[in-house]
Design a protein around this nucleic acid. Structure first.
Lengths: 145, 145
DNA sequence: GTTCAATTCATGCAATTGCATGTAATTAGA
DNA sequence: TCTAATTACATGCAATTGCATGAATTGAAC
């Protein structure tokens, strides 16, 4: 028989939702205003850009981005359609495939980061000093661990 | 010319997203397993249940829940269809309407809370003591303020 | 008291998501 | 090694969301 959550725990959860919704909304707004693709696109491009050979298996992208398999499949369709990634056959495993970032994809990632970075600073950095941000990150880390 | 965000700030933002996604996913999963409606339904029912006369204007619900107007309009359609709320004309303002919670709506809210509370405790409370939860809530509060 | 802007809510349509399922290939087990 | 379970990815379909816009009031300026 599990206990009910304390008032403090409940409030933390409520605020986690609120904060995320508000900040994400503001950041997505800034991205759109800057002519950038949505964050979900950026997340995939970033993972690809910093991978060893600029390529990853969909199943690897899934794990880091937390996008559901069926959503990722179609997200990759869109990225491919825009020429930001290409799909290539996977030698090791014929079930799988490589998702390769293109030059255009790298350029988009880099350009988006400029806008994204400013937005993060504006909506998070200006409201928390580094020490507080560190504490926040540590506490949030305990939730995912 | 705005600065770039610090490493600490960026990490806090990344973890805010991750933590929220993971915890929300886990909680929604538990709600579904318990035969409860999704959180968006619960949020509306809760606001109605604790309002003065068990009724609110859609525009008021919008402000507290952060649901977009066009989404709320259709969310209310679904709640109404399930008999959890009813719509009534608004005397003061002929443009508006009252959204009134029904008995079934109150019962659903109460039943959902039992499952929801356990899920919050499991996915948040068991990972943070009250002091940490308080700190977390305070830090998150700075982001929305 | 007219007129024009702002507010409240609804809705058509396209895009995205969730769910269930399908296909193909790999791995594990008897 | 043959079979069954698992893994990787795609897709049809229904539900939800985002966006643009519409319709009806209300409020404000003059």
């Amino acid at each position: 028989m599990s206990r009910n959550p304390s008032e403090a725990v409940t409030r933390a959860w409520i605020r986690l939702n609120r904060a995320r919704d508000r900040v994400l909304g503001a950041i997505e707004h800034d991205l759109k205003a800057g002519g950038c693709p949505p964050l979900a696109w950026y997340d995939v491009l970033l993972e690809l850009a910093r991978s060893a050979d600029g390529r990853l298996r969909p199943v690897e992208i899934e794990k880091v981005t937390l996008v559901a398999q069926y959503n990722l499949s179609r997200l990759l369709d869109r990225l491919e359609k825009e020429g930001l990634v290409a799909r290539a056959p996977c030698e090791d495993d014929a079930r799988g495939q490589w998702v390769v970032i293109t030059e255009k994809g790298r350029a988009t990632q880099a350009r988006t980061w400029k806008v994204y970075a400013k937005a993060i600073q504006k909506h998070v950095g200006e409201k928390l000093d580094d020490k507080s941000a560190g504490t926040l990150a540590e506490l949030l880390g305990r939730l995912t661990g």
